[in-house]
Design a protein around this nucleic acid. Sequence first.
DNA 1: AATTGTGTTCGAGT
DNA 2: CACTCGAACACAAT
Length: 258
Amino acid sequence: MPELPDLQAFSHNLNKKLAGKTVKQIAVINAKKLNVSHKELQDKLAGQKLDEVYREGKELYLKFSKGDILGLHLMLHGKLFLFKDKHENKYPIIELYFNDDTGLVLTDFQGIATPTLNPEDKDAPDALSKDAGVDYLTARLQKTKTNIKTVLLDQKIIRGIGNAYADEILWHARISPFSASNKIPADKVKQLVKSIHSVLKEAEKQIIKANPDIISGEIRDFMNIHNAKKTKSPTGAEIQVKDGSRKTYYTEEQELYS
DNA sequence: AATTGTGTTCGAGT
DNA sequence: CACTCGAACACAAT
């Protein structure tokens, strides 16, 4: 599934391809959790120009000329396709048609990818925002004793990190995923903030390098730790796997604070 | 051809 | 009551 760096790449590419186009029509085919009626979405967005596409947490935001925003959450398997005139992709959720006869379709075989009209502003900072800095995380990590991986995955605390990148980030920071969040020393929290930023930005670079025009799917061959094809970390430690409702990959190089 | 993977919600258990 | 954990969603890729 796409995580933050993938979505970041998608948003750049979609912005390049779609910004400036005007919405002609919208078809809602299977959006169980859309927060407004099909008619309201159509009435609001038809005729508006798409100003910008960008990423917010794990969602893509399409911002229109009158200020309306269409949020797209891809969930586990959502995929985007651009098309001319019509498309033949299976499992469509929603289709946007533009006035030059091109279109954008969101599909999901699980039917759980979710469009949202004018999503509420979230309190939690985006993982790449400067608001998710040392001060914020230090204070926030003190408030809970759950393990640090769970905290990184909690979208109410910091938005955008998923299962795979949580493992990559924690290895990069050399913090065990099972560490109690309130036991991580100050200098390690500093390192964690640096690791969040550098792991996510580096991944985005790798993804764009591998596929400059990517707007869906995922590329993860380059991942160092959360990678079933690898047995050792770049520094030679055996990669361990803990099976849970999601898998956690880690090595003994990561210090456990408890 | 059986296994694996992925975010979020929700209900049950501690 | 607060928290933690697993199941479900339903298929593609291998």
